[in-house]
Structures are given as structure tokens and as C-alpha cells.
Design a protein around this nucleic acid. Sequence first.
DNA 1: GGATGTGAAGTAGTTCACAGCC
DNA 2: GGCTGTGAACTACTTCACATCC
Lengths: 231, 231
Amino acid sequence: MVTPRLRSKKLSEPTIARLPVYQRIAEGFARRGLSRIDSEQIGQLAGVTATTVRRDLAGLGSFGTRGAGYDVSVLNERIGEALGHDRSYDVVVVGLGNLGRALVNSSNFLIRGARLAALYDVDPAVIGVEIAGHVVRNVDDGIVPATVGVICAPASAAQFVADRLVEADVHAILNFSPQVVTVPIGTAVHYVDFSIELQILMYHLNNGTGPLGGGVLHSLGIASPSGRRPS
Amino acid sequence: MVTPRLRSKKLSEPTIARLPVYQRIAEGFARRGLSRIDSEQIGQLAGVTATTVRRDLAGLGSFGTRGAGYDVSVLNERIGEALGHDRSYDVVVVGLGNLGRALVNSSNFLIRGARLAALYDVDPAVIGVEIAGHVVRNVDDGIVPATVGVICAPASAAQFVADRLVEADVHAILNFSPQVVTVPIGTAVHYVDFSIELQILMYHLNNGTGPLGGGVLHSLGIASPSGRRPS
DNA sequence: GGATGTGAAGTAGTTCACAGCC
DNA sequence: GGCTGTGAACTACTTCACATCC
């Protein structure tokens, strides 16, 4: 059993959730013409400690320079490699109500290798309409094989859509409907529920003692360094 | 210092993120006319172990019945109390492009005490238009005081909007733009980034070894019970 | 000098195992 | 009998502190 060189260092779940954030920060620096960044700066912007940043990045191999931080473009590249951005993959979106349209038209959703393959709906009023360069097809005509399926249908149709996606051999599903769906083992389902974020925010507000830091990133359970004040 | 009776039991962050999920499940049971549920069933549907469910719920006080599980309506009620759903609060949404419209028109976003107070934009083409029962106002005219501000503006305008919200004394911000914003201490910012979910999904797919369970909930870092097969 | 990378310590969260109660 | 609730064990993640290297 040879130790894999770069790939599959088995990153932890929290680390994986933070890497895209670091990458966004790196892109911001690059856009402003800066070529170097240190763990302190990344942590400040991402709302985590510098140590956490260093540990996360150390997991991708040692590419920082002691005394000088990280090269912004190398950082960007390494995170991309770790997250598999070199490969591109097909995404199908099912359900083109307000949310579905917002997603496929967004410049921040289908990025980093994601390629929109097809759109589906069941509503005759929507089928045939062209959205984001794709003509919306009928779910009943069968879904084209893809890597990821996105469910933007109402809760009542979520399980139906999930079943159609499974039939189409889609093994990764992103479900935006507030409905738990059951799928066979071997298929991953991630849920995105906007109202949960609102509810978490309200809990902290009601109980005072929430992580109310400055410029802090809390998405995906990322907590702020407690009692540490920025700058 | 008297120990508070029900409130402020200081729930852990992962627990808080799971409670809304349990509540959704309880509602599903109630809708199907079922009056009892046990930790095993909840765990199955939420994608966590039964023990985790019991520990989470024990934090809200002991309201389960040994040998018979939880009463669905009591469960629903207790979670609501813990999350502060009895209080209602005002939400303002800034930016009514595709996503902003999708959110305010969604039946799953502004729920459980959230009340839409006002809509804002900077685009003259959108200002004055009525959406979801509210006429869109101009951000420059000042934002009305509210509990939560939702940023649906493009990344380039995110910081500007955040500043206006802070001026309006909004202390909780939900930011849907892929832009880290800085706010004074005492203001909470939660980020929602759809593409991060996609990227996490892709990481697991590329590395095989992901949490690919059946009917599992992964949103917000909720991981599946490893190596445990459902049913 | 200055920031990375990492063993060691600390903390938080999960899972086990079972006593307690219906 | 069956399922909750919880001390105890375990695992995972974070933070400290510092050796290491540019």
C-alpha cells in the first residue's frame, strides 16, 4: 500500500468547508494585485484563528514560505487541486421556479468545474422555455446522466425528483427543498435550507451569548475565535 | 445567581443547527397524522445517530417518555421555544435580483417568527416595484430598523449594503453574496454560499471516501454516522 | 526577524453502555 | 419490553507553544 503523494490526504470535514472560503479570500487579494498573504490575514477575513488556517493549509502540503506567508496564486491553485477543481463535472437542475432560475443565472453557483448540462421541470408553462442558454425539458422524458443533481422543486415533489435523479444514475444530490428525501446507499444528499441559517441567527440573538464577532464567517458551522477581538 | 429554568441552557452549535431539522421531521410526522416518534426514527431521517438525537433533545429538558419516544406536538413546541419561535422579528431584504425575489417569495424562508418589514435596492428599475406585498425602496433613503438584514446584492455592493444595515442599527446579517464583509463587534454576520455546498459534494465524490449514506443530511456540517448502514 | 508547520495539550462533540422509568 | 436520559469513554477538532526554515 503506497502512500498517495498529493491526493487523498483525507482532509477533515470542517477543513473542507473552510477551504472554499480561503480561496475566495485569495481571489480577492489577487484581484487587488497582492501576491502574498499570511495566515493571520486569512484568519482575520475568514473569522478563524491563524493557527486553524495554517493547520488546514498544511494538510494540502507545505507550500508556504516561512517568514513570508503564502503566495496567493499558489494558494489558490493548491486549494483548487485539493477540491478537485481541475476536473469538470455536469450539473442538472430540476425545478425552475424563482430559486432555480436564480441559481442557474447566478455567477457564483456553477463555478470551479461545474458545467450546466440540462434543466428540467414538470410545469408545462416552463417546459420549452429557454433559461441560461438551456431549453427546459420535461422530467418525465428522463434525466440525462450527470454528476450532480440539484433539486429546486417544491417539498411535495422533492422525493419524486430524487427518484428520477437516482434512476438517471446521479450519485450526488443538492437538495434546496425543505424535505428529507431517501435515496439508496451510495448516493450523497446535501441539504441547503435558508431558513435554518435565519433560525440559528435568531437563537444567538435571543440568547445574547452568541458568536457575535466582527466580520466573522459563520456559514457551515464555522465559529468565531471566542473572545478574540479583530485588529 | 439563580439557575434559569428553561431558557439559556446554552446549547452547542451543532445541536442548534440540528434542531430545525428535527422540527421539520416532526412536522412531517404531524402532517401524516402520527403523534409519536422515537429517537431512532428522527436519527434515521436526519442522518445522525439516535444517541445524538437524544442528547440534543435532553438539552431542552426531559419531555420524552421512556419506552414510547416523544410526543410529536410537544417535540415541535419545545424546539420552537428553544429556538425562540414565540417571538417574532423584523427582516429587511436588500437586493431584489433573482435570488432576493426567490427568497421573499419562498414559503420556506420567512417562517417561524420572521416578518418581512421592507425591501430595498439601488436599481431604479426595481425601486417602486411591488414584490411580495412590499414596494421596493431606495437604499439611499435609509433602511428601517430591523432585527435581521439579508444581503442579496452582488459581491461588489455587499460591503456598502452591510454599512447601511449597521447604520440602521441592524445587528444580525445574513449575507448571500460571496463577499466577506467587515462589521463592528456586536454585529453577527452569517454567510450562505451555495457554491461551497457544491464544492464539498464534489470533494467527496472525487475522493470516494465521502459520507455517502442513504437519506442523509449533510447541510451545515452534519455528518452521517460512519460505516453504519440504514435500516 | 518573521511566519510556517507541527508535537503536545486542551476542548468540544459524539458514541457507548446501561440505569431508570413508563 | 422498550426507549429515554446520562455518566464515562472515546474521537475529532482546535489552540498553544515553539522548533524550523526562509
